[in-house]
Design a protein around this nucleic acid. Structure first.
Length: 469
RNA sequence: GGCGCCGUAGCCAAGUGGUAAGGCACUAGACUGCAAAUCUGGCAUUCGUCGGUUCGAUUCCGACCGGCGCCUCCA
């Protein structure tokens, strides 16, 4: 079997990847901050990670994936304070929504979804280690900072040494007391709004709360050990988030924090980064409201490589919808076929080989998708030949199962309301009678009625079927 | 200002030092009473522009033009 290759941000190269123990991939993926609905850009990253975990399982490894839920941070506290709520009251509904959304997009469950607020002791212990070994210091107000000049490797992931900080960039506007402007907070001394919203805990340095980066280090190491096989996230997290995770983790353990880092590129909307501040966000709730199947968004995302920016345009989802419809049509046809041809079996084997090769080569989803569509074309042709090779058909079904087990692109049968279904059935009955009487004008008039309500019909030897949309 | 990415047909988008996957759309034909679905064929002598290296570049190098992102809110 070909080796599994991934682009490693640490080396900026595609290189062979395998779990340290040869069996189980210990994967940490940065999750959402649950203070508002995650948008489609966030989900592009989560989908890339879903593809990654499914590809690894196909390869034969087990995956132990941890995705954190950030449920205490500045924005959450601000929102809670503004609403007179506790941070939990803010985060719980959005945590639920996150899970609903990701299920709609068919993102598989991670093994663990740890919450920051449930790992305060682990975080405090990590900070104590850093204070004890001198890489962290306590500020006048009881906040604790990481001293980046005491960690020689600082900046390796983001290649900081090659950068110059922009003149006038946002530096040192922090209201906390730091020795060096670029030192980052491990622990933040509690302020009145922290206490008011339930975002303050006792610590050796007084009341306070964790800094942004701390939770990931503490929870990753708790569930996956001191050295992860792989750490993934959005490209914007390279600096400072992941850089700081590496610093605080490695300064504490003396061991590499992650053997490989993978970052997914951004989703743009009409040429601009999808972000709340830009005001161009779309959410899964929007998708559902438009009746767009999760498989459609999966196709849109997988149609581009994860390391390239992807632009969501007006007709992007319509194009994916058409593509996914073809996959669904094929899936149904393959499922009910009674036999194939020897060439069908050959096509299936070619497809599987091409699919695996593409997927294992740095998750080349567009090429994997091409393998799928080539297979669909080949298989449709063979199915038209109506052969009786049962083994070949079984092979084709097996391969399609393998491919769709990763991509998961067969659209769900549209849930049509009973009222519409009853009406359609009644109309189809009338049309059948008209056709039997060879009154095609009447039959076509009925079809026009159906089309007007978005119903497409298909006549075949087995009878007439229909679908909404 | 520093760092990085990208520019392939109407649209989306892979890819390679030896002459361009796949999808959507469109289009001709087959099938169909007509459609739909499916099949067959057509659809970039060309990969932002200009130079260079090379027997040969879309693929390597340089310049330029255009777009995007990061530089401590950020998937």
């Amino acid at each position: 079997m070909s080796e599994f290759r991934l682009f490693n941000t640490l080396t900026r190269r595609v290189e062979p990847f395998q779990p340290a123990d040869g069996r189980t991939v210990r994967l940490y993926a940065c999750g959402p901050t649950v203070y508002n609905p995650a948008h489609l850009g966030n989900f592009r990253t989560f989908l890339f990670e879903d593809l990654m975990r499914r590809a690894m399982r196909l390869y034969g490894w087990d995956v132990m994936q941890v995705m954190n839920l950030t449920d205490v941070d500045d924005k959450i506290i601000r929102k809670a304070a503004a609403n007179g709520q506790s941070i939990t009251e803010v985060t719980e509904p959005f945590t639920d929504l996150f899970h609903q959304d990701r299920r709609y997009l068919r993102i598989q469950d991670a093994e663990v979804y740890p919450k920051a607020t449930e790992h305060i002791p682990e975080m405090i212990a990590l900070v104590e280690t850093l204070v004890a070994n001198g890489t962290a210091y306590v500020g006048e107000d009881g906040s604790v900072y990481f001293a980046i000049d005491r960690f020689a490797d600082y900046g390796r992931l983001s290649q900081l040494d090659k950068r110059e900080i922009k003149t006038g960039a946002r530096v040192a506007q922090d209201e906390y007391t730091k020795e060096n402007a670029q030192d980052f907070a491990l622990w933040k001394a509690a302020k009145p709004e922290d206490e008011a919203t339930g975002a303050a805990w006792d610590s050796p340095w007084g009341r306070g709360r964790p800094g942004w980066h701390l939770e990931c280090s503490a929870m990753a190491m708790k569930y996956l050990g001191e050295t992860l096989d792989l750490h993934a996230g959005g490209i914007d997290l390279i600096f400072p988030h992941h850089e700081d995770e590496i610093a605080q983790s490695e300064a504490a353990t003396g061991k590499p924090f992650a053997r490989c880092w993978c970052h997914g590129e951004f989703l743009l909307t009409d040429g601009a980064k999808m972000a709340k501040r830009v005001g161009n966000v779309a959410t899964v709730v929007d998708l559902r409201a438009q009746g767009i199947d999760g498989a459609v968004y999966r196709h849109f995302v997988f149609n581009a490589h994860y390391r390239k920016q992807l632009n969501l345009l007006d007709d992007s989802l319509a194009q994916s919808q058409a593509a996914v419809r073809r996959i669904g049509t094929f899936a149904r046809r393959l499922a009910v076929a009674s036999g194939g041809t020897p060439a069908l079996g050959d096509a299936a084997q070619r497809a599987e080989a091409a699919f695996r090769a593409a997927l294992f080569d740095d998750l080349n989803a567009p090429e994997a998708l091409a393998a799928l569509f080539t297979f669909i074309s080949d298989a449709n042709r063979e199915l038209d030949a109506a052969g009786d090779d049962v083994a070949a058909l079984a092979e084709a079904q097996r391969v399609f199962g393998v491919i769709d087990g990763v991509l998961d692109l067969v659209p769900a049968d549209a849930e049509t309301d009973a009222e519409l279904a009853a009406w359609v059935e009644e109309r189809l009955g009338a049309r059948k009678a008209a056709r039997a009487a060879r009154d095609f004008a009447a039959a076509d008039a009925i079809r026009a009625e159906l089309v007007a309500r978005g119903v497409t019909i298909e006549d075949s030897a087995a009878g007439t079927t229909w679908r909404a949309g």
